[in-house]
Design a protein around this nucleic acid. Structure first.
Lengths: 334, 334
DNA sequence: TTGTACGCGTTATCAA
DNA sequence: TTGATAACGCGTACAA
């Protein structure tokens, strides 16, 4: 059932059918009704591919993310998809993993499907080595690229992110008033990973101190493994009053470590998570966590994109504050 | 840059270009190289819409899920997307929410985009009232429909699921050897929700007992709210030796209730979760949970679909056992 | 091995 | 307000 069949049954030309289909041009009410009736009775649906061919778009946006089963990324994908749909865009989802080569490959795959834009969800897309970001810059020559939780200056690239650096500086500074036995436990040096670490360092610098190497611990493992690695360090004599983390999983690991080491939380050890995710409230006491306003950023990212589509002037970067959700694992925060 | 430009620059016809593009028909090595060179230097990419129009497919599968930020559904979506990509299919993601009307609307939206198949992720898609499933049956007249964690008998509908009923019967039966003070705490009566409840009931029936109404508690709230509602019941004098739940969030709520009520776990109260998800291991003691093999089912669902595409004979339903992951919140399970 | 010509189902332009 | 017709870019019989 195509547009010719409809035009024939309705006794009009395909041009007229197309007109009522798209509702822009003027058609007499009588013929419009006639055509609508025929469409109804035949259950006609226009062919999306032909439409795409003619218009050069199928109203589709590609979402790239490393791993949509990760709680944070899953939420981001969800918010993005919801927001896109409000504007009648479909979401083509592509999980890339963390390898740059693979990311580039999949990005180009989506591009070859003629998506109208790309949204890169997650700070892992922007690497410190600018060479490795080149594929993003090139993609932006084809379609607008929006990066969630990452910053990259290039034409046609837009970013929406949280000021991770400032909130980490803030939190660290608060603790530094009473102690500098602070461990910063982080998973990776993605874009926001680097910002967070910089915030911690800056707080130390502002206090006229320097963050000792051994108080920065990079660890990318499960909750159980995190607990283990902290226990080992503890056994070797290391002591901390505060553990800051770059995500809530690590904080849960620290929480379990505290329990295993017999340390009272927050009296003997304070713990701060990041992302304010669901698992932060699964422990007792519940974990104080930094809210990076993922939903707000995600929706804003889409909103920015729509403005770009509309040809409006859009800032290349939008940033929101991180805010502290104070719960039971801290006593020294405001 | 289209196929005509390439053919012109290479001094051949578009047919030949198309042939090297698709690599099926025979082309002399010399002209193939020539054409490839031109493609390379011009950065030519065939137009996916035109291709879709001609072939009637863009190798896209629609994934419907109520809420891709839900941990379980997010994992399902992830596994499905990964598996689809192995077979060179793209995933069009659509989050529908839990309203049947909306689900039907979005399903038809995806259909209008000419997806090659639909995958319905999550047991909430199959309702008890068959009337409400009619839109799925109709969709299956257009394209194959695969349901993950739901069962629906209809032409061109395929299901991959876990035998929730049997494992719940099994677990309940084990506890019934020593006590019948068992509370079954569940969130909703989706397809698998109904199966789980039936399993609990059957175990009671097999033991010659009947599950009292007050030992079935339907509750759809947050962890904190779950804790509250159990505390209220406890305050009213209700006592349980075991709390079985339909998902790990509810189990965490029960866990927090136990702590608040001063009940030792598992000595005074045993708790069983469902889904074997990440949050089951965030508490202390960690929560015994039923593994419904979501990854296996998800990948199998896609595999089934590919076989349907290939015209192979495929069973309309595939089922796997649920298995118990025994952890610290139980003592009476094997 | 290669080329010609048509079909796929729209949208849009230009006349009428 | 309508209709005829040319794009859109590709795949593929059929012919050479």
């Amino acid at each position: 059932m195509n547009i010719y069949d409809i035009s024939e049954k309705a006794g009009v030309s395909i041009a007229t059918v197309s007109r009522v289909l798209n509702g822009n041009s003027r058609v007499s009410e009588k013929t419009r009704q006639k055509i609508l009736a025929v469409m109804e009775e035949t259950g006609y649906q226009p062919n999306a591919f032909a439409r795409g061919l003619g218009l050069g778009t199928m109203n589709t946006v590609g979402i790239l993310c490393a791993d949509s089963s990760d709680a944070v990324l899953a939420s981001a994908v969800y918010y993005i998809e919801q927001e896109l749909r409000k504007y009648q865009y479909d979401a083509l989802l592509c999980c890339t993993g963390y390898d740059t080569q693979v990311k580039a490959k999949y990005l180009n795959l989506l591009l070859s499907k003629r998506v109208d834009a790309l949204i890169l969800a997650g700070s892992n897309f922007v690497e410190a080595d600018q060479e490795k970001n080149q594929y993003i810059v090139e993609a932006a020559r084809e379609v607008p690229v929006v990066i969630l939780n990452g910053s990259l200056k290039a034409p046609n690239v837009y970013c929406a992110l949280c000021d991770d650096r400032e909130i980490m500086r803030n939190v660290t500074a608060q603790f530094l008033k009473t102690t500098d036995q602070i461990l910063y436990l982080f998973r990776s040096l993605t874009y926001s990973g680097r910002q967070k670490a910089a915030g911690v360092r800056q707080a130390f610098a502002d206090a006229g101190k320097e963050l000792p190497e051994r108080q920065m611990l990079q660890f990318n493992g499960s909750i159980e493994e995190t607990r283990q690695v902290l226990l080992e360090r503890f056994a070797q004599g290391e002591r901390w009053d505060v553990i800051l983390t770059s995500d809530d999983e690590l904080a849960v690991g620290a929480h379990k470590f505290a329990r295993a080491a017999g340390l009272a939380v927050p009296e003997e050890l304070q713990i701060v998570g990041y992302n304010n995710s669901r698992i932060a409230i699964c422990c007792e006491p519940e974990i104080t966590s930094i809210d990076n306003h993922l939903e707000y950023c995600s929706r804003s990212a889409v909103a920015m994109l729509m403005q770009v589509f509309d040809g409006e002037a859009v800032p290349s970067c939008m940033s929101v504050s991180g805010d502290i959700m104070i719960r039971g694992t801290t006593s020294g925060l405001v």
